[in-house]
Nucleic acid binder design. Structure first.
Length: 509
RNA sequence: GCCGCGUUGGUCAAUCGGCUAAGACGCCUCCCUUUCACGGAGGAAUGACGGGUUCGACUCCCGUACGCGGUACCA
C-alpha cells in the first residue's frame, strides 16, 4: 500500500451544477495527486438513470477546465482504465455481485417495492423509527437466504426482478483509519443490508465505488463527510471481494456549511443570501431556471481556487494567498480540518480583490472587454489597461472596473451637485474659468504640474486648494469617486479636461 | 429514535501539555487622502458545559449539551 502509485479520483454524479463543495473536493484530490506525483481521474457516477440530467457532465468538465484542475483521465480524455462513465461499465459489476453471493456475503432479494413499503409500515407501527432491511428482518423477507435453492433458481431463470444485497454480519466491530479523523469504528449490527445491484442491473454507488476504485487502482479515496456512515459497507466489500490489501486510504472531507444557522450549504442558500454557490452559471434544462456562478459574477479562477483551499485547510503558517504551485507544494491531507466550515462570502470577495490587485493590467483589460462591449464603448487596449491599473485596488470584481472608472470612457451624464452647491461661490466659478483658460498653455499635462498650477492659482486667489478639489472631481467624474483627481485629468488629457470643466461649470451654475 | 462525526472570537483559523490564546475577513476608532479605495496605527471580540488525569490542560480521558451527517433499488 505504501509504495503504491498515488491515484485519486473525483466521482460526481451528473445531476446538476457543480457546487462549491464539489469543487473543493476536486481541488483536494488534485492537490494531493500533484503533491505526490500521482494521477487524478474523473469518473462519472451515472448509475441512477432516473436522475440523469443532460449537460451536467459537460458542465462539470468545463468547471474543472475553468478552475485549472483538469483530470489526467476522464470520459473525454480516456485513459488506461476506460470507460470512465459507470453507465458504460454496466456489464462489469454483475460478476462481482454474483461472486459475493457465491461466497455467502450477499444474497438475492425478490421483494417488490410494495413489500418493502409494507415491511417498513409494520416496523414503524412497532415503534421502529428507521426500519432497515437488516439481520433482524431479512429472514422474514423474500430472498435467497430463506428460500430453497430450487425456488431461487426458478425465479432467477424466469427473469424475476431482483436485487443483490450485502449480508451484513450480525455483530462485528469494524474499524478503519481515516486520514483526517483518525480511527473510526462502527458496529455492523447498525448497518443495513444495502442493495449492491439494482433490479435494472445497474450497481448502486456502494458496489460501483468499490469495484471501480479497485479496477482503476485508486490509492486514496477522498469524499464528503456525508459518506462516512456507509464506509463500513465499502470496507466490508473490499474485504469480501478479496481486495483488502489494495483498499485505498480513506479521507472524509468536512462539509461546507451555510453562513447563517447550520447545515450543508445549498444552492437555495445562495439564492436567499445573494451569492453564488455553483462554480459557473447553470441552467436547469427542465425548468430553464438560471443559477449564477462564481465565474460569471466576476471571480478569477485562481482566486476561487485559493479561497476554496482555505476552507478547511491551512498550512499552519498563517499565509492565505497561495499560487496553485504553492498549494501543491504545501498541501497535506492530514492538515485538513475535521469540522465543517461556514462559507463567508465577504472573505471570498476579499480573495478576489487580492487577485485583481496583483493581476497584470493588460490581463484585467482583456477580462474587462466584455463589459465595455456591453456598454457599447470602444477604447484602445492600452488605455483600458491603464484605467484598470488606476482603479483595480477598489474592485472586488472585474466588472467593478466600470463602476469605479466609467468616466474614463464616457462623460458623466449627471453631476452630484448636492456635494458642491452648498459651498459654491462666484469666486470658485471664476477660479475654474481662469484655470481652465490657462490650461491650454500648459505643456506638461501630467498630474504633478497640473496639481502645482491648480494650487498656485488657488492660493493666489485666497481659496484653499482643498475646497476646490471636490468640485473639480465632480466636473470630471460626476460624483465622489475615482482615483486622485489630477491623475484623472492627466488620463483624460488636456482637451477633454478643459471641456469637462466647461460642462461642469454649466451644470453647477 | 438509532448510528457516526464534530465543537477555539460574528466568520476562517494557529496551537500538536507551559497561553500574557497567533494571524486573516468583517466591524469600530484614528492617521493618510477634502471622493472612494489602498496603506499605516489602535480597539472590541474566542477555548460549549461538568468531571477526571497532571506540578500544569484549549490541548489527553470520560460524561453532558449542542450542531451536523446518515438512516433509499440517490449519489
Amino acid at each position: 500500500m505504501s509504495q503504491k502509485k498515488v491515484r485519486v479520483r473525483f466521482a460526481p454524479s451528473p445531476t446538476g451544477g457543480l457546487h462549491l463543495g464539489g469543487v473543493r473536493t476536486v481541488l483536494f484530490n488534485y492537490l494531493f495527486a500533484r503533491h505526490h506525483g500521482g494521477e487524478f481521474v474523473l469518473r462519472i457516477e451515472d448509475t441512477d438513470q432516473t436522475r440523469y440530467v443532460p449537460g451536467a457532465e459537460e458542465y462539470i468538465m468545463e468547471c474543472l477546465r475553468w478552475c485549472g484542475l483538469e483530470a489526467d483521465e476522464s470520459p473525454l480524455k480516456g485513459g488506461p482504465y476506460a470507460p470512465y462513465r459507470q453507465s458504460e461499465r454496466k456489464g462489469l459489476y454483475r460478476q462481482y455481485a454474483e461472486q459475493l453471493v457465491a461466497a455467502g456475503h450477499a444474497y438475492y432479494a425478490f421483494d417488490t417495492p410494495e413489500e418493502l413499503e409494507a415491511m417498513r409500515e409494520v416496523e414503524k407501527a412497532r415503534g421502529n423509527h428507521s426500519p432497515q432491511y437488516n439481520h433482524s428482518v431479512r429472514k422474514t423477507m423474500r430472498n435467497s437466504l430463506v428460500m430453497d435453492a430450487a425456488e431461487v433458481k426458478a425465479l432467477l431463470e424466469k427473469g424475476t426482478p431482483h436485487v443483490v444485497r450485502i449480508k451484513m454480519p450480525e455483530n462485528e466491530e469494524l474499524r478503519f483509519t481515516d486520514m483526517i479523523r483518525g480511527e473510526v469504528s462502527f458496529q455492523t449490527s447498525t448497518v443495513d443490508d444495502k442493495v449492491l445491484l439494482k433490479a435494472d442491473g445497474m450497481p448502486t454507488y456502494h458496489l460501483a465505488v468499490v469495484v471501480d476504485d479497485y479496477l482503476m487502482k485508486i490509492s486514496h479515496a477522498f469524499r464528503g463527510e456525508e459518506w462516512l456512515p456507509s464506509a463500513p459497507v465499502h470496507i466490508l466489500l473490499w474485504k469480501y471481494l478479496g481486495w483488502e490489501a489494495d483498499m485505498p486510504q480513506w479521507a472524509h472531507l468536512p462539509l461546507i456549511l451555510k453562513p447563517d444557522g447550520n447545515g450543508k450549504l445549498s444552492k437555495r442558500d445562495g439564492d436567499r443570501l445573494g451569492f453564488p454557490v455553483y462554480a459557473m452559471n447553470w441552467t436547469d434544462p427542465k425548468t430553464n431556471e438560471l443559477t449564477r456562478g462564481f465565474r460569471e459574477i466576476g471571480f478569477l479562477p485562481e482566486a476561487f481556487v485559493n479561497m476554496l483551499a482555505m476552507l478547511g485547510w491551512n498550512d499552519g503558517t498563517g499565509q492565505e494567498i497561495f499560487s496553485i504551485e504553492e498549494l501543491i507544494a504545501r498541501f497535506s491531507i492530514e492538515r485538513v480540518h475535521k469540522g465543517g466550515a461556514k462559507f463567508d462570502y465577504d472573505k471570498a470577495k476579499w480573495f478576489n480583490h487580492q487577485y485583481i490587485v496583483k493581476t497584470d493590467n493588460a490581463l484585467l483589460a482583456n477580462l474587462f472587454k466584455p463589459v465595455l462591449l456591453e456598454k457599447g464603448v470602444a477604447a484602445e487596449p492600452a488605455f483600458v489597461a491603464h484605467v484598470a491599473g488606476l482603479v483595480k485596488e477598489r474592485c472586488h470584481f472585474i466588472n467593478e472596473i466600470w463602476d469605479h472608472g466609467f468616466f474614463f470612457f464616457i462623460r458623466p451624464d449627471k453631476y452630484d451637485v448636492d456635494a458642491v452647491k452648498p459651498k459654491w461661490s462666484a469666486e470658485k466659478q471664476a477660479f475654474f474659468e481662469e484655470w481652465a483658460a490657462g490650461l491650454a498653455g500648459l505643456e506638461d499635462f501630467s498630474f504633478a504640474p497640473l496639481e502645482e498650477s491648480f494650487k498656485q492659482l488657488a492660493t493666489s486667489k485666497g481659496i484653499k486648494p482643498g475646497e476646490l478639489q471636490l468640485p473639480f472631481r465632480i466636473m470630471l467624474c460626476g460624483g465622489k469617486f475615482g482615483p486622485p483627481v489630477f491623475v484623472i485629468a492627466e488620463t483624460l488629457g488636456k482637451a477633454e479636461t478643459i471641456e469637462r470643466i466647461r460642462l461642469g461649470l454649466a451644470a453647477l451654475a
